[in-house]
Nucleic acid binder design. Structure first.
Length: 339
DNA sequence: CAGACGTGGAT
DNA sequence: TATCCAAGTCT
């Protein structure tokens, strides 16, 4: 960048004139700003808005979130994905309640030590809520900086991201929160991944990639790994009381969400009977097929109905199913059963 | 560090 | 349809 103060001025003036009216920009409450940043991880603004409104209605402050039932939090988070985010957020908020008198710490070291607070959220909340002079480096900012500086390093590497963060903090103006949001807003609306609107860019004159005709070839990122394909049989196990078996998912993927019992396709019904301790009638009634794509896996699910007269602790009334948090993957196959 | 971790929008 | 990628963090 040729002239830092010229660059900063152009960017900040552009931001003030063009910033979108987003719900979390109407508040100065550090808790609400923090909540928005947790929701915005790997999630588009348009998706977050209704969830943010729901959460500030249901959990308007630190104490209401800290004291909330985890199952209710998960239900309210249902559909937003990356479900550990809300569990981690509640863990962090409980610590704020217990250790910091329910006030979000304005000390960066204290804030960064909280669960779910990484380099991005730490910088974003500390700069936007408290105007601490820290960068908030997200995917937008990495793309903007790679182009401005004709930087061909692999932007997926943590070491490169750290270097970019330091470069930004070296030019950070006193308006830290606005500056960070301006860089992100520029990336989201002008310096986009495809078909960037360089003609509209307030800092075009500072962009090395634009001068070199290399905007389209930046940023450099290593390719994503191929997804693993997994084939499941999913069972709607019913009894004579209008009940169905649903259980909490174990493990790390979709932990805490409720699921229909699912098994690798070569698992026999006999071994399922053994695992569940049930005698099952299997009329071989096929409910439907669903494909669901995750970041790192693809599930192919085949749904079947089974009946039993036996008792099982995981039976739940069909009327109660909608009250439980369920992933989109399970919702898709469950809807085929309802229909 | 690489891989795990959801879902939906855009091309 | 396939691919990228979106206000990233944890293990």
């Amino acid at each position: 960048m040729l002239n830092i103060s010229d660059f900063n001025n152009n960017l900040l003036v552009w931001y003030q004139a063009n910033k979108r009216d987003l719900p979390w920009r109407r508040t100065s409450d550090p808790y609400r700003i923090w909540l928005s940043e947790v929701m915005l991880q790997q999630t588009q603004v348009i998706t977050v808005i209704p969830y943010f409104e729901k959460f500030i209605t249901n959990y308007p402050d630190i104490d209401s979130l800290a004291d909330a039932d985890e199952g209710r939090l998960l239900k309210d988070w249902e559909g937003l994905g990356y479900y550990n985010r809300i569990r981690n957020f509640q863990t962090a908020v409980k610590e704020v309640q217990n250790t910091y008198d329910s006030k979000v710490p304005d000390d960066p070291d204290a804030f960064f030590s909280l669960k779910g607070v990484g380099p991005y959220i730490g910088g974003a909340v500390q700069s936007i809520a408290f105007n601490n002079l820290l960068a908030a480096v997200d995917g937008n900012v990495l793309r903007v900086m790679a182009r401005l500086n004709l930087d061909y390093r692999d932007m997926t590497k943590a070491s490169v991201q750290k270097s970019v963060k330091q470069n930004i903090e070296a030019i950070m103006p006193l308006e830290a929160g606005d500056f960070n949001q301006a860089l992100m807003e520029l990336g989201a609306t002008i310096c986009t991944p495809r078909a960037p609107k360089c003609i509209m860019c307030p800092v075009q004159g500072h962009c090395e990639a634009y001068k070199a005709g290399e905007v389209a070839s930046l940023p450099v990122k290593k390719k994503a790994k191929a997804k693993k394909e997994i084939y499941y049989n999913v069972y709607f196990i019913l009894n004579d009381n209008e009940e169905i078996i649903l259980r909490k998912q174990e493990g790390t993927l979709l932990q805490g969400m409720y699921e229909l019992p699912k098994y690798d396709i070569d698992t026999s019904v006999e071994s399922i009977e053994e695992e569940l301790g049930l005698t099952l009638d299997h009329p071989n009634l096929h409910v439907g097929s669903v494909k669901h794509v995750f970041t790192h896996q693809v599930w192919y699910m085949e749904g079947y109905v089974l009946y039993t007269k036996d008792a099982h602790p995981d039976f739940i009334s069909l009327n109660e199913v909608e009250k439980l948090p369920m992933s989109k993957a399970m919702q898709k196959i469950y809807r085929q059963f309802e229909g």
